[in-house]
C-alpha cells in the first residue's frame, strides 16, 4: 500500500522496532526472514538471487575492466569521461546506480576521493558491494574534513602540491575514480592491466598501482 510520508510516524515505528526486535543482528535477521517469507513479502528464491548476484557476478572486476579499457582505448576513455553511464552500458555493465555514473581521473597533480556523507551511495553495478569502511561513520565523517589523514591510513602519502578532489555523492550521480596507469605496463594486455586495478583505487583510497600487482 501507499506510504504516509509522515516523518513522525516512521520515527515512532522505529522506536517500537528498537524496543521489540532482537538486538543481536543475526537473531534479528533470522526472525525477520521467517516472518517476511511467511507473510509473502519475500520469495526465498529472490533472496538467493540478490545475494548471489553480488557474490558471483557483480563486483569490482567490472570497474577494473572499465579502467583498463580506458587506459588502452583513448576513444573509450573520452566517452567514459563524458558519460560514464553510457560507457559502462557499452560494456554490458549497466545496472544498479550506474545510470548517472561519473568517472573522475587522477593525474600527477590531482587525486580524487569518493564518499557519501549522508547515507552511503555507491556504484554497485560497477564496483559491487561497498566495503564496510565506506559505509562506516568514521569514513563518512572524515573523508570530507580530513581526506589526507584518511588517505594516510590507507598508505597513500600525498605531497601537499597534489590537489585532493573529494566527491560527496549527495544526489543520484555516482562516482568512480580512474587511477593512473602504472609505469612499466607498456604492452600489457587489457586483462593484465585490469588485474592491477584495485577496488580502493576506484574509490580513491589507493593511488599508486603497482605494475606487478598489489
Amino acid at each position: 500500500m501507499e506510504p504516509s510520508y509522515d516523518s513522525a510516524k516512521v520515527a515512532e515505528i522505529h522506536r517500537h522496532l528498537h524496543s521489540h526486535l532482537p538486538s543481536e543482528p543475526a537473531l534479528r535477521v533470522k526472525a525477520l526472514e521467517s516472518l517476511l517469507v511467511e507473510k509473502g513479502l519475500v520469495d526465498p528464491a529472490a533472496l538467493d538471487a540478490w545475494i548471489e548476484a553480488y557474490t558471483e557476478e557483480i563486483g569490482p572486476k567490472r570497474g577494473a575492466m572499465v579502467v583498463a579499457r580506458a587506459w588502452t582505448d583513448p576513444d573509450f576513455k573520452a566517452r567514459l569521461l563524458a558519460d560514464a553511464g553510457a560507457a559502462v552500458d557499452e560494456m554490458g555493465f549497466a545496472g544498479q546506480a550506474s545510470g548517472h555514473l561519473q568517472a573522475v581521473e587522477n593525474t600527477d597533480a590531482v587525486h580524487n576521493l569518493v564518499v557519501c556523507t549522508l547515507c552511503s551511495c555507491y556504484p554497485f553495478a560497477i564496483l559491487g558491494m561497498a566495503p564496510p569502511w565506506y559505509k562506516a561513520n568514521e569514513y563518512r565523517a572524515r573523508a570530507v574534513r580530513d581526506p589526507r589523514g584518511v588517505l594516510a591510513e590507507f598508505g597513500v602519502a600525498l605531497e601537499p602540491e597534489i590537489a585532493v578532489r573529494v566527491w560527496d555523492s549527495t544526489a543520484e550521480l555516482r562516482y568512480m575514480v580512474v587511477p593512473q596507469r602504472p609505469a612499466g605496463t607498456e604492452g600489457f594486455s587489457v586483462e593484465a592491466l585490469a588485474a592491477l586495478v584495485t577496488r580502493n583505487a576506484m574509490i580513491g583510497t589507493d593511488r599508486d598501482l603497482a605494475a606487478g600487482g598489489a
Binding site: 533470522k30 566495503p131 577496488r199
Partner: peptide, 30 residues
Amino acid sequence: LGGKQGFGPVDRAHEDEPYHSEADARAYAL
C-alpha cells in the same frame, strides 16, 4: 556525518568480502 569530529581511524576489516557475514548478506537481500 560529513565533517563531524571525534571519529577515529577507518577500520578496514572484511574489506575484500562482498558481505562481512551471513547475517549481513541476508539483511541486504531481505
